[in-house]
Computed example of a mutant assay.
Amino acid sequence: MPFCCRGCSRLRPSRRPWAAGWAAPAGTRCRWRLSGLDSLETGVREVDLTLDAAAPAVAGNQEASATCHRLAGISFPWDMTRSLELALLKTFCLPSISGLLQRSGEFEARPRKRYDDTGLMVAELLRHGPDSTAGAAVIERMNRIHAHFAISNDDSLYVLSTFVAEPIRWMARYGWRPLTRLEQDHLFRFWAVVGTRMGIAGIPPSLTELLEWNRRVEVQHFRYTASNQRIADATLAMLLEDWPAPLRPLARRLLMGLLTAPVTDSLGWSEAPSWVQRLVLMALKLRSVLAAALARWRPPGEARFYSDRPTPSYGPRFSLEQLGPPALLARLNTPPSSAPGDGRDPSAGD
Rank of each mutant, 00 (worst) to 15 (best):
S307F: 08
E140T: 15
T91Q: 07
R298P: 00
H128K: 05
P300G: 13
E241Q: 14
F305R: 09
R278W: 09
L254V: 07
D155P: 07
G202F: 09
R82I: 13
L332P: 02
Q229E: 11
S313V: 03
E108W: 05
V164P: 00
V159P: 04
Y224C: 02
L255D: 02
D131Y: 06
M171E: 10
N143Q: 14
R114K: 06
P312K: 08
R253W: 00
A237E: 10
V44N: 06
D117A: 08
G199L: 10
W32C: 13
R309Q: 04
P273D: 03
A303H: 05
T91N: 00
G7L: 07
S65L: 07
S319M: 10
T118L: 13
R169A: 13
F163M: 14
Q62A: 10
V276C: 10
T260M: 04
L207Q: 08
T162A: 02
G73L: 09
L84Y: 00
S338M: 11
Q184G: 12
A251Q: 04
S274Y: 00
S96T: 15
V58A: 14
T50Y: 01
D131R: 05
Y158C: 08
R16L: 13
D117C: 09
A26Y: 06
Q102A: 11
R169N: 08
L239H: 06
L290S: 12
R10Q: 09
M198Y: 13
T264N: 02
A24W: 00
T81K: 14
G349I: 06
L332D: 04
G129M: 03
S270T: 10
L34V: 15
V289L: 06
S98K: 09
A283F: 00
D131P: 01
W32Q: 09
R144V: 10
A24C: 13
R197Q: 14
D52N: 11
E321A: 15
S206H: 12
E218L: 04
G99Q: 05
L332W: 07
N228Q: 02
V263G: 14
L332Q: 03
G135K: 12
G36I: 12
I151F: 11
R10L: 15
K90F: 06
M171C: 13
Y306Q: 10
G195S: 11
A64P: 13
L125G: 12
A292T: 13
R278Q: 15
A150R: 06
L294T: 09
E321F: 03
T196G: 15
Y115L: 12
A109F: 03
M80K: 04
I97C: 01
W78N: 08
R216L: 12
R248T: 02
G60V: 09
L286R: 13
G268R: 08
A272G: 05
R331M: 15
L279G: 14
V194Q: 09
I97V: 10
D116K: 01
A348W: 10
S206R: 11
W213R: 14
W32A: 15
K113D: 05
A147W: 00
E140I: 08
Q229W: 00
L120T: 06
A54H: 11
Y224V: 03
E271S: 05
